[in-house]
């Protein structure tokens, strides 16, 4: 209990730090919402040229985009900071974290609570609501459950990808942008129907890494459409399991990474 209060206090301190640069905070807030708006806008623009992409029409595609974008925004808000790990490793800030009586990962995440990223979650969820309205969903209890679980599972999955990508810095401090290929790349991948991708690329991202279960399969299950790629209908409901699997892997990778840091230093 005391530990929880410590984390709450840490979070509060970060919020106050952010507000101490009021002008920057506002601009970054606007900028962050802008980034999410542009992601959705891109989909709308592409649909100006055609009425179907990969066999899906605009409302259907928008459903996938919005599940991804609300889940990603949530993950980025909660753990997106972790991609600064390489800076912390290089600057030795991690040492200061390790001499405190709290877990290392939560401390790192709370070192800069990005309040500015909050509005993106709101925007993502709004688009999701609009997309659900545009589609003719045949609501069943299972689908109601799925529509709440899908963005959360997406957030857990994306958050795990964030942690795994960032952990790379424990072994390779100069890993630079390579993590974004999987975090931001994964988000872009999952924003479109995965039918658009070539078989090898799709095999890697969608099934080997699991990005198919972020938005594509849940969206099919919500829409009641059979998967043109042949997975059964229940695959959409597997997304929480895939997310838990990813979180497990992320935890293990992080633990091994910290041990690696301990044995090599910076």
């Amino acid at each position: 209990m005391g530990e929880l209060r410590a984390y709450v206090a840490l979070a509060g301190a970060q919020a106050r730090s952010a507000f101490s640069y009021r002008a920057s905070f506002l601009i970054e807030l606007v900028g962050n919402v802008g980034a999410t708006v542009f992601d959705v806008l891109s989909v709308l623009v592409l649909f100006r040229a055609t009425d179907r992409i990969g066999g899906f029409d605009l409302p259907e595609a928008l459903l996938m985009t919005s599940i991804t974008s609300s889940g990603f925004a949530l993950a980025d808000f909660a753990v997106g900071n972790v991609d600064r790990l390489k800076t912390y490793v290089r600057a030795g800030t991690l040492d200061a974290v390790l001499v405190r009586p709290l877990g290392a990962l939560p401390q790192l995440l709370l070192m800069d609570l990005p309040m500015r990223k909050m509005l993106r979650v709101v925007f993502g969820v709004t688009v999701l609501a609009v997309a659900l309205g545009l589609n003719d969903v045949d609501w069943t209890p299972a689908r109601v459950l799925l529509v709440t679980l899908a963005p959360l599972s997406c957030a857990v999955f994306m958050g795990s990808i964030f942690v795994i990508s960032a952990s790379l810095a424990f072994w390779w401090v100069e890993s630079g942008e390579i993590g974004s290929a999987f975090t931001y790349g994964g988000r872009d991948f999952a924003s479109y129907p995965i039918t658009v991708y070539g078989p090898a690329f799709r095999g890697l991202f969608a099934y080997a890494l699991g990005f198919a279960f972020v938005a594509y399969q849940p969206a099919l299950a919500l829409l009641g459409r059979p998967d043109p790629l042949g997975l059964p209908a229940w695959a959409g409901f597997a997304s929480p399991l895939v997310a838990i699997g990813a979180a497990t892997v992320a935890t293990i990778v992080w633990r091994i990474g910290i041990r690696q840091y301990r044995s090599t230093g910076s």
């Binding site: 290929a181 790349g185 658009v196």
Partner: peptide, 25 residues
């Protein structure tokens, strides 16, 4: 050099993403 390699890899991944989407359009 290492940052160059990492950045190039990332650019290539995004290349596949964008290319497949535009070709699908």
């Amino acid at each position: 050099r290492q940052a160059t390699i990492a950045g190039t890899f990332t650019n290539i991944v995004f290349g596949y993403l964008r290319c497949y989407v535009l070709l699908a359009v």
